[in-house]
């Protein structure tokens, strides 16, 4: 039977000091699993964006990571204001970070489009006033050229 590995991370809203800890950890795991460096990079970038979004916008959140021999599935769930218009947020050039947060050096201004670009499958659901759920799935074997 295929191995499945599970990791969990807690993220505190406003904890900019530790922002990126989960993506850094997942990156190290994938390197040890001999995942191709281009795939590692994509996962790290997508997860970093999503993680920083929780820090910058939400009160708190959790990250669940499942890795099987073929793919990595990441679910991020936060308690926060949610995204009122996901379609708008997905448009290129739109950043989920406020100008202030961007000035702070977080969320380089690419926001959700960057997350989409770096994930094979991205699904976002949000309930305004309650929170946001993000699902990222990436194949671990490079199936096409990037």
């Amino acid at each position: 039977m295929d191995q499945v590995m599970h990791f969990e991370y807690a993220v505190e809203g406003g904890d900019f000091f530790n922002a990126g800890a989960a993506s850094s950890n997942v990156k190290k795991i994938l390197k040890k699993l001999n995942v191709d460096s281009h795939v590692v990079k994509r996962v790290a970038v997508a997860l970093y964006e999503a993680e920083v979004n929780i820090v910058a916008h939400a009160y708190r959140g959790k990250i669940w990571v499942d890795i099987d021999g073929r793919r990595i599935k990441i679910i991020l769930s936060d308690e926060g204001p949610g995204i009122p218009d996901i379609d708008l947020a997905m448009k290129a050039g739109y950043s989920t970070a406020s100008p202030r947060v961007r000035e702070m050096g977080f969320g380089a201004g690419m926001g959700l489009p960057n997350m989409k670009k770096n994930s094979d499958h991205l699904h976002i659901t949000s309930a305004p006033g309650k929170g946001t759920q993000v699902e990222i799935i990436n194949e671990l074997y490079e199936s096409h050229a990037f």
């Binding site: 590995m5 390197k31 040890k32 699993l33 001999n34 021999g69």
Partner: peptide, 20 residues
Amino acid sequence: QPRSSLALDSDMQKAMEKMQ
């Protein structure tokens, strides 16, 4: 060329078993 010393095994399944 990369010459990674990080991977636990060249086979991902085996690497996962080792990581567990």
